[in-house]
């Protein structure tokens, strides 16, 4: 066990070094956001602010608040609807399999890998046609539709773990499609809903391509507004960093408090287990 003596400190050193790499951007983000603009000079980038100055947060908040609100109006209904749809699909595709159900599932699944650029032009034409272009409900609709593959996959895998015997015996007791879902599947899927909701919440909050192409100015979600901050003439890095932090806060909170479920969503099905 002699090698352990030098090996352990080395492992800790490595873990610390890697932690520095991962935390460095956070450090820079925080110190920069707390500086007044005249202290945000390139040479002093790594230094702590001479005094904590919250004004960049005030500026960033003023600029981003309406878009922050847009994002909430987008993400809450989109998450709920796509989780509900996913659970129904997952239920049918795992417990009411019909001939060709697995092939159909694979075809649905393909939808989550496509580059969305390949559907964007028709999508925008379509949204214009039905009057949902440049509206939050339009974005909700888009996220629900393109969320079908991932939410279906997650719920299908989740429901696969519920023994078929339970369904069979419920059927013998006279329960049908709806009753089984309501009284057996739903009560057992609380965790599934948490995992899927967190996953969808994070992805939709962070999404950029649909947001930037489907909405303009006052309808834009937070990430587009954040990106636009840098589009102005002089880049106010302190405001930028404060804005980035504000925009990241909701998903960071979710990660900090419900990280376990976030990682479960990430692994949902990716590793056989």
């Amino acid at each position: 066990m002699a090698k352990q003596l030098w090996a352990r400190p080395f492992l800790y050193l490595l873990a610390l070094a890697m932690s520095v790499f991962f935390l460095l951007p956070v450090y820079v983000m925080i110190v920069t956001s707390l500086k007044p603009l005249d202290e945000v000079t390139l040479a002093d980038m790594w230094k702590l602010p001479s005094a904590v100055d919250w004004s960049s947060y005030a500026t960033a908040f003023e600029k981003l608040a309406p878009n922050f609100w847009n994002s909430i109006l987008l993400v809450v209904p989109a998450t709920l609807l796509s989780a509900l749809l996913g659970s129904l699909n997952g239920y049918v595709l795992s417990k009411w399999k019909f001939k060709g159900a697995d092939t159909l599932f694979t075809l649905i699944l393909f939808g989550m890998f496509i580059p969305y650029q390949s559907i964007l032009i028709p999508l925008i034409q379509f949204l214009r046609e039905i009057g949902l272009y440049n509206t939050i409900p339009g974005l909700v609709f888009v996220h629900v539709v393109y969320g079908i593959p991932i939410t279906t996959l997650m719920f299908r895998n989740f429901y696969a773990a519920i023994p078929d015997e339970m369904i069979e015996s419920a059927k013998i007791d006279g329960a049908g499609f709806v009753r089984i879902f309501r009284y057996i599947m739903l009560p057992l899927s609380i965790t599934g809903f948490v995992v899927v909701a967190i996953w969808q919440f994070t992805n939709i909050w962070n999404e950029f391509l649909f947001a930037v192409t489907i909405t303009t100015s006052d309808k834009q979600p937070i990430m587009v507004a954040l990106q636009n901050l840098s589009g102005s003439q002089i880049v106010q890095w302190n405001v930028q960093m404060a804005g980035a932090l504000l925009a990241a806060l909701p998903t960071l909170f979710v990660y900090i408090f419900l990280g376990k479920y976030f990682v479960r969503g990430l692994l949902a099905g990716s590793v056989k287990g």
Partner: peptide, 15 residues
């Protein structure tokens, strides 16, 4: 090691 995954690519890009 995990937390950056919860962030948006836009935030990552800006920082």
């Amino acid at each position: 090691f995990f937390f950056p995954m919860a962030l948006s690519f836009v935030v990552t890009g800006v920082v």
